[in-house]
Design a protein around this nucleic acid. Structure first.
Lengths: 112, 112
DNA sequence: ACTATAATTCGAAAGATGTCGAAATATAAA
DNA sequence: TTTATATTTCGACATCTTTCGAATTATAGT
């Protein structure tokens, strides 16, 4: 019916779980705004997306942040890749498009 | 900026929490598909939207269903209104439009 | 090799959530 | 006013989640 990959209900629940937390939503938000799809964020000194920069904006323990990032990653919402000592995070644009798609066509519509 | 009411990050977390459960997502799904916005669902004998009909499709205790409906209602995602012995449920179309809006414009974008 | 920095893993404690069955409430019908 | 049906509230229990600090791993610089 559509040209997009569909998200299984089970996976959709995981995505909502991942976003259903104050800190994780803020993280996702920071990543969508600072590292907008297509733009590189390494060159800007105000915003970048390594774990330490997120840490500076979040007022939670580093271990807690690490846990939240793992959840977002597990849900497929963000990508993480190490570059030297740092790990850089960014939104998974494919997942984001799928989400947009779901909501702009009446939430799931999945039959089952 | 937009003509739509914006959703506060705090409320958005509540909305995601409400959808972050297998049964609640299914309920919301049933309501979006059987009682599509604008259509009345009382006349169709296969699908209607009272609590008992949902119960028949869900394989959980009635008390559990009641709890889930309360959560969806608390998040502002569904409306409930009693008609005689039954309580009829339907999606809150305004909330759904807000959700669509959020996702079609890069998730929240809220600055704070 | 040692040291410093960045991030993750590992318990443990506190809190939130999902679930049920029994009891209560609301409404209608006999 | 008694009975039947629909739904909700309550209390209990089990499980999952959030959080932290301490210890560990990864990488780079001295």
């Amino acid at each position: 019916m559509s040209k997009y990959k569909t998200i299984e209900p089970v996976q959709l629940v995981e995505i909502f779980k991942a976003l259903a937390n104050e800190h994780r939503l803020k993280i996702y938000n920071i990543l969508t705004t600072c590292c907008a799809p297509g733009s590189s964020c390494a060159s800007d000194e105000v915003f970048s997306c390594c774990v330490g920069d997120l840490d500076a904006q979040l007022d939670i323990a580093a271990s807690t942040l690490s846990h939240h990032l793992k959840e977002l990653h597990r849900a497929g919402l963000i990508d993480m890749k190490r570059d030297g000592k740092q790990v850089f995070c960014s939104v998974n644009t494919e997942a984001m498009q799928q989400l947009q798609n779901i909501f702009s066509s009446q939430l799931t519509g999945a039959k089952s």
